[in-house]
Simulated assay, not measured.
Amino acid sequence: MFQPGHLHRSNLPGQLQFAIDLFYEVRQDPKEGAMLHFRMVGEIEGKAFSEEFDLHRDTAFNFASVLTRVAAKHGLPTGHNLIMHGHDEYDRMYQDIRDKLGARPGDPVNFDHLAKDGF
């Protein structure tokens, strides 16, 4: 279930048990500028977790890859993508992030940010 600033995902009956909430917002960092702050909380197979991280404005659009890595770190197999390209939730979340960051096609990417954001 998606609503601006929040995505909730959970398993279907008969699948690996998980329930994950992802919250995101734009924050201004005095040194780095606009950052997309994520808070990911949930439970995977009965084990609770919580993690927060930031992505630079210009690298925030690779959020699905980062979310998959964070979820895998906490026990969700990588085949259970939290959000997939081409799905309505992904498209709506992507557009919401673009709107929140004021991003436009063709905006430059600072390659130093890629390393800082763990890519």
Rank of each mutant, 00 (worst) to 15 (best):
H113K: 10
V70E: 02
L22G: 03
F38W: 12
H113I: 09
R9F: 00
D58N: 06
Q15E: 15
L82Y: 02
E32H: 08
H56W: 05
I20M: 06
V70G: 00
G118M: 11
V26T: 14
H8K: 05
F119Q: 10
Q28I: 14
Y90T: 01
G14I: 14
D29A: 10
D91W: 00
A60I: 04
K100D: 02
P105L: 12
D88S: 13
E52F: 06
K47T: 13
K47C: 03
R9T: 04
R69K: 13
D58R: 01
L101G: 07
Q3E: 13
I83V: 15
G106Y: 12
G102E: 08
E43L: 08
D112L: 14
M93F: 01
A64W: 00
M1G: 10
L36D: 01
G79I: 07
H6W: 00
P108F: 07
F23L: 11
A72M: 06
A34L: 04
R57Q: 14
D112M: 12
V66G: 01
R98A: 09
D99F: 03
P77T: 06
N81F: 10
E52R: 15
G102K: 11
N62G: 11
A19N: 15
E25I: 03
G46Y: 12
A60R: 01
F111E: 12
G102S: 07
V66P: 00
S65K: 04
M84Y: 07
R27V: 15
H113T: 10
D21A: 03
L36E: 02
K116G: 06
E45Q: 15
Y24M: 11
D112W: 09
G42V: 03
K47L: 11
D99P: 00
D21Q: 09
G14S: 13
F38S: 01
R69V: 02
F53N: 05
E51L: 07
S10H: 15
K73Y: 07
S10V: 04
G42F: 03
Y90K: 01
D112G: 07
E52P: 07
